[in-house]
């Protein structure tokens, strides 16, 4: 009994906060999405699945889902590829490797808002380097963030850039966990660098690669700051991704229950992906033991 009380004192701060600020809000998100505001915006009336029905019937909602998917499908592979190249270049020691590690991992320390400003200037129609380089090559300047076709892919590239440090760190750790003996044995057997990479390194890295990929996917599905700073979901709603739609509907259109339904649907998608990640992680831990 005494031990129980003592444990309670140790556990209460963390678990009390979890209950209040993590568990209850998830429950409330669900509750809210099942209710409708009355005419005066005061009390709420039971609405069943009406909000979900409305969200799913809106073309704008599906447009946002599609944009989110497109955004994630550009961000995740690009970020993973850049991170893998960076990791392959720094996972083994050589003179000067510490400098390259610092430079590759650096973007993790760059706040989203700063990344957005840096790219906003980099892609500036007049002063930006991107268009200067195009000009030097004799190509016309590109409306990177101001055209409905280019804005979303451009934001995806910016997001991938901002995430390279994160992926590079995870993949470097993954590469360093591959036993050196396996690679040495392959070298003795006459395998060249390419064969070693495709036949040994990549297969042994694939669990880490897959998990990192899932993480990057999860992050990209909730990217908000860079979009808010650089395009405000535009132009012409061409970068109005799912999470931005929730924000817009809740804080500008004042449709809180509808936004809650949209948020809960996103929550289910993220939860499914996180569950998959978790199951894989459990399996990997199991194999390693």
């Amino acid at each position: 009994m005494r031990a129980g009380l003592e444990a309670l004192a140790f556990l209460l701060p963390a678990y009390g906060l979890f209950l209040l600020f993590m568990i209850l809000p998830v429950g409330e998100a669900l509750w809210l999405s099942l209710h409708q505001e009355d005419l005066f915006g005061r009390g709420r009336e039971w609405a069943g699945l009406a909000n979900y029905g409305e969200a799913l019937a809106r073309p704008e909602f599906w447009k946002s889902v599609g944009l989110t998917l497109k955004f994630a499908l550009i961000t995740a592979p690009l970020e993973l590829l850049l991170g893998l190249v960076a990791a392959l270049l720094v996972y083994r020691p050589y003179p000067g490797v510490a400098l390259f590690r610092t430079l590759f991992f650096l973007t993790t320390a760059v706040p989203t808002a700063v990344a957005a400003v840096a790219w906003g200037w980099f892609l500036h129609p007049v002063g930006g380097y991107a268009n200067r380089v195009l000009g030097a090559l004799g190509l016309p300047p590109m409306p990177w963030l101001t055209s409905p076709e280019l804005a979303l892919p451009t934001l995806a590239v910016i997001t991938a850039w901002a995430g390279v440090g994160f992926t590079a760190i995870l993949l470097t750790a993954g590469l360093q966990n591959i036993p050196e003996e396996v690679l040495e044995a392959a070298t003795v057997d006459g395998a060249g660098p390419w064969t070693r990479f495709w036949r040994i390194t990549l297969p042994l890295l694939s669990p880490t690669l897959f998990l990192t990929g899932l993480l990057v996917l999860l992050k990209s599905l909730t990217a908000f700051g860079q979009i808010h700073l650089l395009t405000r979901g535009g132009p012409a709603e061409s970068s109005m991704v799912w999470i931005y739609r929730v924000y817009q509907d809740a804080f500008f259109n004042f449709r809180v229950p509808l936004a809650a339904a949209e948020a809960f649907l996103l929550f289910l998608v993220l939860l499914a992906l996180a569950g998959l990640q978790f199951w894989l992680l459990g399996r990997r831990v199991h194999y390693a033991a």
């Binding site: 963390a14 998830v26 998100a29 809210l32 999470i243 809740a250 809180v256 948020a263 978790f278």
Partner: peptide
């Protein structure tokens, strides 16, 4: 187990009810 399960809760999605709270 609860702490592990909470690892999976994406914070970005609970911002709306958290705001109301």
């Amino acid at each position: 187990g609860l702490a592990v399960a909470l690892l999976l809760v994406p914070g970005e999605v609970t911002f709306l009810p958290l705001y109301l709270l």
